[in-house]
Design a protein around this nucleic acid. Structure first.
Lengths: 152, 152
DNA sequence: TTGACACCGTTTCATATGCAACGAATACTC
DNA sequence: GAGTATTCGTTGCATATGAAACGGTGTCAA
């Protein structure tokens, strides 16, 4: 915007704590932290695994590619998360017979039971965060939309 | 807030794309992405290294512990970033003679020259982001403050 | 058909990470 | 002062990660 003001060091003044990429990274980590730890210690579920589970609960049979696109994770990350979830018995992998390149991932009964416990926790957490944001919630979400380009 | 509405699957309805920890993580990654890649490819600097450099440019001689506290990184992460920066000749490590447990990290001349190139890029990027947020910037930052607890 | 090309999911490889343990240095307590 | 506790920065270890390569499958055009 304006020309950088040089300090004694000859370098432009720059405050990391006001730098938006930094602030956002710190805030994101803080927001995930508590819930992620709880999911990990109580249920043995990581964040990538949680994202896969949520998408399966929400959308039924889905391919890895599908999840990759909708859940903002590399396909290798999705693949590994899915393998762990399968090993734990929470999801099933089947081959899509109409296109044998694709997988069909789906929740098992055990997986649905897990989600029946996880989802209410997430919903409550969302409510907590919203309460914390209070009157700033609307503006905050508007900013998020701008950044991710959902609503330009 | 309200009781979860059960869908056909018997699970509560839950949309990951409205979940604040998720949205924030995605937005944070998107915001860091472009700048981080540029710093990496053009200058060979990672995000942890960048944070250390900024703090040194801003605060002169500093210990690892100091950076850990102000820059939201594990001390091992700071330590490794500092070692890489020292190997690259951007910073100097000295022992603090008044407390020989502490290090004094400082920018070398080469490090200052690097920052003279990096900082204007960051400042311009910040301006870009602010422009993108436009009238939502203020509300967005207010929300960030709520989350990180800067201003309760 | 056959061949070139594109796509899907997994795996390999190099690197990054968090956590705990460690040695060195200092502070505290008696 | 001696012995214990604490702090600092580094490192070892197990795991997670992104990027590229790979085998298997499907598509398209001649």
């Amino acid at each position: 915007m304006t020309a950088p003001i040089t300090s004694k060091s000859g370098l432009p003044d720059f405050d990391l704590t006001r730098f938006l990429p930094y602030r956002l990274a710190v805030a994101a980590e803080k927001l995930s932290e508590g819930l992620a730890r709880r999911y990990r210690t109580e249920f043995g579920i990581s964040v990538p695994e949680w994202r896969v589970l949520v998408h399966l609960a929400h959308s039924g049979n889905v391919s890895v590619r599908d999840i990759e696109a909708r859940v903002a994770m590399e396909k290798s990350k999705v693949s590994r998360a899915a393998s762990r979830l399968e090993a734990a018995g929470y999801i099933a992998k089947e081959i899509n017979e109409s296109d044998r390149r694709l997988l069909q991932l789906s929740l098992t009964q055990k997986g649905r039971a897990l989600m029946a416990r996880l989802l209410p926790i997430a919903i409550a957490y969302q409510a907590e965060v919203a309460a914390r944001l209070a009157e700033t919630l609307q503006g905050f979400e508007a900013g998020l939309d701008r950044i991710t380009g959902d609503k330009v």
